[in-house]
Simulated assay, not measured.
Amino acid sequence: MKLLTAAAMALALVTGSVNAAEQLNAYSIMPEKYASKVFSEFTKDTGIKVNFMRFSSGEALARLNAEKKNPQVDVMLGGPADTYAAGVKEGIFEQYRPKDSDAIPASLRDPQNHWTGIGIIPLCFLTNTKFLEKNNMKAPETWNDLLDPHY
């Protein structure tokens, strides 16, 4: 859990300095029940309290963009790499390399150290085979297939 916690807290630093050594403010894209555990472990390990709010990736990115000139948080936890890539383009994230990040494959880290991945979550289609059979349809194979009104 220590590597996960360290990587999670270093996932992305929002432009601006950390408030005080006693606390961090964070946005989380990760579901609250998991983020609470990560932040709790971080607090146990460091003594630093974490105040966080949970948002979808789009909401978090929009907030960070709106707050770019006056950041309200120190870190963001969770979410897909493309959210962070978009934030890097907007100049939202500072560079930071966690101490133990060499343990994380390079393909799961930003080469410029704007974000560090903490896990891989596969994205897949789930289908109701009974529905497909009843409607004489085959399972979608691409995102564009889902544009078909039958789905």
Rank of each mutant, 00 (worst) to 15 (best):
I92F: 04
I104L: 04
I104H: 04
V50R: 01
M76S: 14
I92P: 03
F52M: 02
V88T: 05
P98N: 10
P80Q: 15
E67I: 03
R63V: 09
R54E: 14
G58M: 00
G79Y: 13
G58V: 00
A62K: 01
E67Y: 08
V75H: 13
S57L: 05
E59S: 05
Q95M: 11
N65A: 09
R63A: 14
A86Y: 13
F52D: 00
I92E: 04
I104M: 01
E94Y: 07
V73F: 08
E90Q: 11
M53A: 11
A66Q: 02
E67W: 08
M76G: 11
N51A: 05
E94D: 12
E59L: 01
E94S: 14
Y84T: 08
D102E: 12
E94V: 10
N51C: 06
Q72H: 10
K89L: 09
N65H: 06
L64S: 02
V50E: 09
P71V: 01
D102C: 06
V73H: 07
E94T: 09
I92L: 09
A66E: 01
R63E: 09
K69N: 15
A85N: 14
P105A: 04
G78C: 12
A103C: 09
L77I: 10
D82N: 15
P98A: 11
A85V: 15
D100R: 11
G91V: 04
S57K: 03
K89D: 13
G91N: 09
K69M: 11
G78A: 13
Q72F: 09
N51G: 03
L61P: 00
A62I: 03
D74M: 04
G87H: 06
P105N: 03
A86W: 08
Y96K: 06
M76Q: 14
V73C: 10
F52K: 02
S101A: 13
A62Q: 03
V50I: 04
I92M: 03
G87Q: 06
P80Y: 15
K99R: 11
V88G: 08
I92Q: 02
D100E: 12
T83P: 09
I48S: 07
F93R: 02
A106Y: 14
E67P: 02
